[in-house]
Simulated scan of single mutants.
Amino acid sequence: MESTTRLANVAWEAMFRAQATLAREFERDGEWGDLLPREYGVLYALSRAPEGLRIIDLCDDALLTQAGVSRLVIRLERRGLVERSDDPHDGRASRIRLSAEGADVQRRVGRAHARQVASAMTRALDTSELQTLRDLCLALTEAASDPAAMLPERNSK
């Protein structure tokens, strides 16, 4: 029987390779229009935040560095896809929101991307497996963001 340490590392490697392989496929074969996949990621994050997001919050949501997000936001702002406004809770900060055009682009590209994701995921996994994968990934994400919430009996396995 494999040790827990070995199994955890093999599982991590499998998950990492699956994500990287699919991300390359989506980047290569996706219908991104004139967007880069990372630009779409910022538009997607903003689509779920009607009041907009501060740059620091956008970094967490888009999984990019602050410098990377700042450069992306400047490019998207120049193209009229996002707009800045003052943050009502912090006079030093601004909030980034989708413009009307940005919302249209996000919906159009998002529909195509959602079809591609569904196709890639369902070619190997059935509904039950997708639900299990979702639940496992959510548990990993939750435990990483709040390690104290991890149950002691789970850590000892």
Results as ranks from 00 to 15, higher is better:
78 R>D: 12
82 V>P: 03
46 L>F: 07
76 L>K: 11
59 C>P: 01
71 R>D: 13
63 L>M: 13
45 A>D: 01
56 I>F: 08
46 L>P: 01
47 S>V: 01
48 R>P: 02
54 R>A: 13
68 G>S: 10
57 D>F: 02
48 R>T: 12
71 R>W: 00
70 S>Y: 09
55 I>A: 04
77 E>Y: 10
56 I>V: 11
49 A>E: 07
51 E>W: 02
71 R>T: 08
49 A>Y: 06
67 A>G: 09
84 R>C: 02
69 V>P: 01
56 I>K: 11
63 L>A: 13
81 L>A: 06
62 A>G: 08
45 A>Y: 03
63 L>K: 14
48 R>G: 14
80 G>R: 01
75 R>D: 12
59 C>S: 12
59 C>L: 09
77 E>N: 15
49 A>G: 03
44 Y>N: 07
43 L>W: 00
67 A>S: 15
56 I>M: 05
61 D>W: 13
45 A>T: 10
75 R>W: 06
66 Q>C: 06
45 A>S: 08
57 D>A: 09
72 L>K: 10
56 I>R: 15
61 D>Y: 12
67 A>E: 08
61 D>C: 10
64 L>W: 01
70 S>R: 09
76 L>Q: 05
53 L>M: 13
48 R>D: 14
65 T>F: 12
71 R>A: 14
43 L>F: 01
55 I>W: 00
43 L>H: 00
52 G>W: 08
64 L>F: 05
44 Y>W: 13
71 R>Y: 05
45 A>V: 05
64 L>K: 08
75 R>T: 15
46 L>G: 03
79 R>M: 14
56 I>S: 14
53 L>I: 01
59 C>K: 08
46 L>T: 05
67 A>N: 14
46 L>E: 00
64 L>M: 15
56 I>P: 02
75 R>Y: 03
